[in-house]
Amino acid sequence: MFRIEAGIDRRRRDLLRSRLRESNTAASPVLAALRTSPAGREDPLHVWALDEDSALAGGLVGHTWASWLHVACLWVDARHRGAGLGSRLLARAERTARDKRDCVAARLETWDFQAPDFYRRHGYEVLCALPDYPPGVTEYTLVKRLR
């Protein structure tokens, strides 16, 4: 007999993640090899653009893992858009991932009203389009080879 509960429980969440990671590692030779390799570490990668007053003008937040860069967020303040700042932030993250962390590829998600064309111009290819996520919007997953 089981009791099913719903509710936020960070301790159980962490335990579940740990057990899933153990199960995945046991089932996959690739994940098992990554566990003992420097590439298997998930390392944050943040790039910031500050204006002349040291205020945040833009930034990129992501991480590297398994020889991949995952860009989670890229934002440029409206006052600084159109000046190439987003391109510079993305290029710096890709260069760091490739040259200092031996990444071979990058991935990211964006919505149709955000920046899919921006990423395409920077060499990213659409791998997946998920329509109506959320309703009326398409989410894209894009990838780019760094080597």
Rank of each mutant, 00 (worst) to 15 (best):
Y133L: 12
H63M: 08
D9C: 06
D51P: 02
G123A: 10
R92N: 00
T36K: 10
P131K: 02
P135E: 15
L85P: 05
E109F: 11
L85W: 05
E22K: 10
A83I: 02
P134Q: 08
G84W: 09
D112G: 03
D112H: 04
G40R: 04
P134M: 05
V76L: 07
T25V: 15
V104A: 05
G58S: 09
R120N: 09
A129Y: 00
R35F: 01
V126R: 02
L34P: 00
E109N: 08
F2T: 11
R13W: 11
E94A: 03
A57H: 03
L60E: 01
A105W: 02
H63F: 12
V126F: 00
P135C: 04
D99N: 07
V71L: 08
E52W: 01
A55V: 03
A78R: 13
T96H: 07
T25E: 14
D102T: 10
Y124W: 04
P134R: 08
R35I: 01
R3I: 13
G40E: 09
A83W: 05
E109R: 08
T25M: 07
D132M: 00
A97N: 04
L34S: 01
D102C: 05
P135S: 13
L50F: 09
V47D: 00
C128N: 02
E139H: 10
A78E: 15
L56C: 10
L50M: 08
A6Y: 13
D43K: 05
G136P: 02
V47L: 06
I4Y: 09
R121Q: 14
L45D: 00
E52R: 13
R13L: 15
R12K: 13
V71H: 00
A6G: 02
D99G: 02
A105T: 01
G123K: 03
G136L: 02
P134G: 02
D53A: 15
L56H: 03
A93F: 05
W75F: 10
G84L: 06
C103H: 07
L142M: 15
A57R: 04
F118M: 04
V47E: 06
R88I: 06
T138I: 09
E125F: 00
G58A: 09
E5Q: 14
G58V: 08
A93R: 05
R12N: 08
L16P: 01
A78D: 15
G59A: 07
D117G: 12
D112A: 04
G86D: 07
A57V: 06
G84K: 05
S54T: 11
P38Y: 02
S23Q: 14
M1A: 12
A93P: 04
A93I: 03
W111A: 13
R147I: 08
A83E: 15
L146S: 01
A39H: 11
G136R: 11
